[in-house]
Design a binder for these strands. Structure first.
Length: 633
DNA sequence: TTAGGGTTAG
């Protein structure tokens, strides 16, 4: 490549700029060493070789020794920058130590890359040293250096120190504000981030799209929907430029908060839509109960990944469309996307709400064939699925064979026993759980209390409920109070059930009042039943059970005008008593039964058998409950 | 001859 010994300085520069490989640089270097005595040449070569791609970094570092000491900052700043941006940011700090060792001095341009590297690798010790050095040589007045110092502290987990540097800055621009806001967000100090954002607006610094992007994502994470409309107004009023990052953050926030029309407004503004943002839309629509809109976005997506398929599957599984969930799952498998444990968890819960034991068994076998037999998520879902499909033994089988169990596994199994009326087994399992030192959580207690309430063991139930706060430090939730109302209600201890409702720290919902109402109906407690029904109707004016109960109470008291009023109201609003459907799947065929239903082809045989069972029950001393018979009078 | 900031789905 180089033959003449008289290459000029400009020619060297020209050749260097054309060096494409490390080999070229080495050739040139050798030539310079042979022909050029001026020591500035090696510095020059060092500098240029530092400036380009990462292949030169090691070479540049080795060249550094040939630079006469003390080196000038302009010589190594470029290499510091490249090192700090490389995959090995720690090398920046090592190189900085070499510079100091060689007696080199830093200028304000040297600090930022070293501090950035210190931030990346959390080198708090070196970072603090640099802070001191910056103070000493007065470069700390430079806003760039100050921002980098601040960021270094924040990245090393010293958010208070970072804020101190921030507060001491005489002037702050939009980057300074953003850096502090971002660091607060990363530490989870969202309120501090919002406060700073407000302060920033007051100090007449105009937020740009990066700041807004962070604030929007902080809003999304905080779950504080109070900011959502304020942000929307701000964007409209200030005509903020929106790039893909900001739009993504906006769509995610509004979709997460269920404001789907606003989310869609931003989503349609995007020219390129990532998988993330589209999946956020699918998820948002499905959580808002708008399954068709979710499906529409889903169908329009050109590329789909596992997360996106899973979102659609769980959307159907959780909104009582289990058949569709399984169809989407089949489609996903046909497209060659392998399910993971989260996807399978959704499929299993779809089977649970389908209530079809046959399908459940198939999914169970599928999970085992595909290597998920040890998966906690899948096995926990299988326990719930079998419990809901009536397969208590199968649920127990899954539970016992699990190589590792967590609190969810135990709670699911306890709940499975309770659901099937096996209170003793539920309580025995709870005792075993304690023996094995697994800490129960609030869900565990729902299962346990449910078991007690159905077994009529009132005193034990009271003790367990008290132990939640006294022994386990778990604050009872609405569901736990509901179980207690149920417990007293079933045991015909209605005043105590009412006392539970009155002692609740939160407002009772329809389920709670409904539970008391049903207990009053069963035990013929008219006055309290009326009170409970009135509360139910306050919360849900069309509640069929409460309306029927009210009309029955009035009928019993021969208040026929009131009966007619309630009945007419129900007819006008088209409130029909919801009828419970029972379904059994047998040999691939589905059989449905309604109250008084004679559609089944073997209806006669079924009713004959029913008659037989009822007479046997009567012989055993069971008396039918006629409390609801008035319903159909 | 060079410097500081961002988002994201089950």
């Amino acid at each position: 490549m180089l033959t003449a010994s008289t290459v000029s300085s400009t020619a060297v520069q020209d050749l260097l700029s054309h060096c494409k490989t490390l080999g070229h640089i080495k050739q040139l270097h050798a030539h310079i060493l042979r022909t050029v005595s001026d020591h500035r040449r090696s510095s020059f070569l060092f500098n240029l070789s530092s400036s380009s791609s990462s292949i030169n970094i090691n070479y540049s570092l080795s060249l550094f020794s040939s630079i006469p000491s003390p080196p000038e900052p302009f010589l190594f700043n470029l290499l510091l920058r490249n090192l700090s941006r490389s995959d090995e940011p720690r090398a920046t700090i090592l190189f900085y130590q070499r510079i100091r060792h060689a007696g080199g001095r830093l200028d304000q341009f040297s600090f930022t890359p070293i501090l950035k590297a210190a931030a990346k690798v959390s080198a708090f010790f070196e970072g603090t040293e640099l802070h001191g050095l910056a103070l000493k040589i007065a470069t700390l007045s430079d806003p760039f250096v100050k921002t980098a110092v601040m960021d270094m502290y924040a990245c090393c987990g010293k958010i208070v120190e970072a804020r101190k540097v921030f507060d001491e800055m005489p002037q702050r621009d939009v980057v300074t504000w953003n850096t502090m806001i971002v660091r607060y967000c990363r530490c989870g100090f969202l309120e501090e981030a919002f406060e700073l954002f407000e302060e920033m607006k007051c100090s007449n610094v105009m937020p740009d799209e990066m700041i807004l992007c962070n604030i929007v994502s902080a809003c999304a994470r905080s779950g504080n929907t109070g900011y959502n409309s304020a942000i929307y107004e701000f964007l409209k009023e200030n005509d903020v430029r929106m790039d893909a990052h900001l739009l993504t953050a906006l769509v995610t926030m509004y979709a997460g908060a269920g404001c789907m029309d606003i989310a869609r407004e931003f989503y349609t503004k995007m020219s390129v839509r990532s998988l993330f943002v589209s999946t956020a839309m699918v998820s948002g629509f499905s959580k808002a109960g708008r399954l068709e809109d979710a499906r529409d976005i889903f169908d329009r997506m050109e590329k789909k990944d596992l997360v996106c398929w899973t979102t659609m599957i769980s959307a159907y599984a959780e909104s009582d469309h289990p058949e569709e969930a399984l169809r989407v799952f089949d489609e996903m498998c046909r497209y060659g996307t392998e399910p993971d444990e989260i996807a399978l968890g959704s499929v299993v819960s779809a089977c649970a709400s389908l209530g079809v034991l046959e399908k459940a068994t198939w999914v169970h076998e599928y999970t085992h064939r595909n290597g998920f037999e040890s998966s906690l998520t899948v096995n926990n879902a299988l326990i719930n699925m079998y419990a809901k499909c009536g397969g208590l033994d199968a649920a127990r089988g899954v539970f016992e064979e699990m190589p590792t169990k967590n609190v969810v596994s135990w709670s699911s199994m306890i709940n499975a026993f309770s659901m099937h009326g096996e209170a003793n087994d539920a309580l025995a399992l709870f005792a075993r759980m304690k023996q094995e030192h697994v800490e129960p959580n609030d869900v565990t207690f729902v299962g346990v209390l449910y078991g007690w309430s159905h077994s009529g063991l009132v005193e034990e139930g009271k003790k367990i409920f008290a132990s939640m706060t006294n022994e386990y430090n778990i604050t009872p939730k609405l569901e736990h109070y509901g179980c207690m109302v149920d417990l007293f209600g079933r045991a015909n201890r209605l005043p105590e059930a009412l006392a539970v409702i009155e002692s609740m720290p939160m407002a009772p919902n329809v389920v709670i009042w409904g539970s008391l109402m049903s207990a009053c109906r069963v035990h013929g407690e008219i006055e309290l039943g009326e009170l409970a029904a009135k509360h139910v109707l306050e919360l849900e004016p069309d509640h069929d059970g409460a309306l029927v109960l009210m009309s029955n109470i009035y009928a019993r008291e021969e208040r026929w005008d009131d009966v007619r009023k309630v009945r007419r109201g129900m007819e006008e609003k088209n409130v029909l008593k919801e009828k419970g459907v029972s379904r059994i799947d047998l040999n691939g065929e589905s059989h449905e039964f309604l109250i008084g239903d004679k559609r089944h082809k073997r209806s006669d045989e079924i009713y004959a058998k029913l008659k037989e069972v009822v007479s046997e029950l009567k012989l055993a001393g069971c008396v039918p409950d006629c409390g609801s018979v008035l319903v159909d009078v």
